[in-house]
């Protein structure tokens, strides 16, 4: 075997860019950049038919009934409301700063209060429930805007409460603090009933 005089022959790097261009094109074609964003919701469980239906313990003054009819008109507690005002109406109802007896009441939380600075007893939690009802011919656009406004009402109230207690925004809190605000004080209770004529299960 003849000995090489030089060490290694130089590698031609010109083709490398072509190969990686091909790869790049492949990834550009097969991938999508859209980030999935949206509004999260948890659907209620189907009630067990063998069990008796739970008693309705929610008092009528704690319920804010939001109705979007088939012509996309919005009414709150049987009063026509513009969608721009929905957030303010919902906030007013949930927080009820003036303790109006026709709006949601508050209940003292007694169990599982975390021992962290910023929490002064008694802790009052809202009992408000938002009942959302729509028709089959409501458009999804309006429905989502209503959902969005309700979410905004809750998140603004949570932000206010966490600024007051912990001096930070809700999204910057730690897990204990967030659970305290989000699950105890301003628990988001949006109850939806399907439109009256939703198809029943066919057996």
């Amino acid at each position: 075997m003849a000995k090489r005089k030089k060490g290694m022959p130089e590698l031609n790097g010109a083709g490398m860019s072509d190969i990686s261009f091909l790869l790049l094109c492949f990834f550009l074609m097969t991938s999508s950049m859209d980030e999935s964003m949206g509004i999260n919701r948890i659907l209620p469980q189907i009630p067990d038919e063998n069990l008796p239906p739970p008693e309705n313990k929610v008092k009528p003054h704690n319920v804010l009934s939001v109705l979007v009819d088939g012509q996309d008109r919005l009414s709150v507690n049987s009063r026509i409301v513009d969608i721009k005002d929905l957030k303010a109406v919902a906030k007013e109802f949930i927080a009820n700063p003036a303790n109006d007896p026709t709006k949601s009441s508050k209940k003292e939380v007694t169990e599982d209060i975390p021992n962290i600075p910023g929490i002064v007893k008694p802790v009052m939690a809202t009992e408000a429930v938002i009942s959302l009802q729509n028709a089959r011919s409501t458009s999804f656009d309006v429905y989502l805007r209503v959902q969005n406004e309700l979410t905004a009402a809750y998140s603004e109230l949570r932000d206010e409460a966490s600024k007051e207690r912990f001096g930070r925004k809700f999204s910057e809190l730690n897990e204990v603090q967030r659970d305290f605000i989000g699950k105890k004080i301003y628990a988001q209770r949006i109850s939806e009933s399907p439109p009256k004529d939703t198809r029943k299960r066919r057996n």
Binding site: R41, L43, Q45, I46, L144, P194, R199
Partner: peptide, 16 residues
């Protein structure tokens, strides 16, 4: 949504 409830896929997200 009703069908999802029946198949107990309760966590949903409305894309926006």
């Amino acid at each position: 949504k009703e069908e999802l409830r029946r198949s107990s896929a309760l966590r949903i997200m409305y894309n926006a």
